[in-house]
Design a protein around this nucleic acid. Sequence first.
DNA 1: GGCGAAGCGGAGCGCCTGTTCCGCTTCTGT
DNA 2: ACAGAAGCGGAACAGGCGCTCCGCTTCGCC
Lengths: 217, 217
Amino acid sequence: MATPRAAAAGRVDARRNRERLVAAARELFASEGVDVSVREIARRAGVGVGTLYRHFPAREELVDAVLEEAFEEVVASAEAALAEPDPWLGFRRFVEEALALRARNRGLKDVAEAHMRGRRRAAAMRRRLRPPLERLVARARDAGALRADFTPEDVPLLFWGSDRVLELTAGVSPELWRRHLGFLLDGLRAGAATPLGQGPLTPAELRRVGRERRRRA
Amino acid sequence: MATPRAAAAGRVDARRNRERLVAAARELFASEGVDVSVREIARRAGVGVGTLYRHFPAREELVDAVLEEAFEEVVASAEAALAEPDPWLGFRRFVEEALALRARNRGLKDVAEAHMRGRRRAAAMRRRLRPPLERLVARARDAGALRADFTPEDVPLLFWGSDRVLELTAGVSPELWRRHLGFLLDGLRAGAATPLGQGPLTPAELRRVGRERRRRA
DNA sequence: GGCGAAGCGGAGCGCCTGTTCCGCTTCTGT
DNA sequence: ACAGAAGCGGAACAGGCGCTCCGCTTCGCC
């Protein structure tokens, strides 16, 4: 019994195929986005589509399984940013790191934007992200660095906008999103603030953004 | 000869069908975006798909024909903004108006972002937009209102980012893009500027953004 | 070593897309 | 009024998608 029966049940070839599928999906989601076809994932993994569906009864479950770990990095980044003593730098660091992760993983960006059309685990991750994110915002605001009218519900706005820049310019100028974010961050400092005509999303509205989007697709 | 033989040649029923197609496409592109299917456009116009293809040998030509007028409004808006005496208000007004047009016309946003995958007329419009836009930027910068490191090539960044917000939140909070733009504009004032790590796109790079994007699709 | 079960592969289904083709209708000049 | 041309409509094609199904292979316990 050298290496046997550890991990989950099932035949060893089945487990190997499952791992191959996850690995193939991880690479393809990161480089091509979540919209790669199941045939392409199966081909990359060296298995048939039937095998893919045996392990992941719907395409979305594979997305869910693969991107959980990527989302975990975002949560970790938010928690690490809270350790930064300067409240403004902590806030800024989280936003930059979260976007840098998206820059390296198209799939993460897709899922974050599409607000999961049925991705349960990503929804759970989102709930985990909320508390540290709220503290990052409150801390920077209370320190007088972040403008007073900024709310946690405004954070997705930062991501969405820079995501698009990222998406469009990744092939030509991979770091250009930092410029867009730089403009935005300069506008988020308390000293730069002028009154805004439009109020923030409420938490309920923010949730609806995801649901509306799901219905469309 | 009351109303006859004016306009282009061809049978009157053919001309009527062409106009119906353009009208149907205009409505659908504005409300659903440029990705509506040809069958849907034909159905809305009350004709068969064969008729659509008789008038517009490829789907893209219909897109091109319909969105030219929408793009024209953007150019007109830039020219009108130059009449504004305050350079900053002029700049701001153009950006806001251009985005408001996109908010009312999904197709315009799609074409502007996709940077025409083969839309010749839109490319011509883009060239027409450049001169007034350059003057708007230079004027606001020279007046000391707009930050000195802002270039005309940065304008698309403003649009792309807010476009995404618009797209995602249109159904829930149709004016939320104004909040995102508000943050951004506050960061564009000379007084708010801090050094940016990343330089602007060159004009050549900006053109490549469109071409890369075309290759993908 | 054999055999039952678990796993595998990929043809095929249903539905979508843009585009083509051609028999039939409708217009229009004489 | 009529003939011929111009225009029309929609079935059909090629190629994509996610997903299902089932005959065949391979594993692993006895």
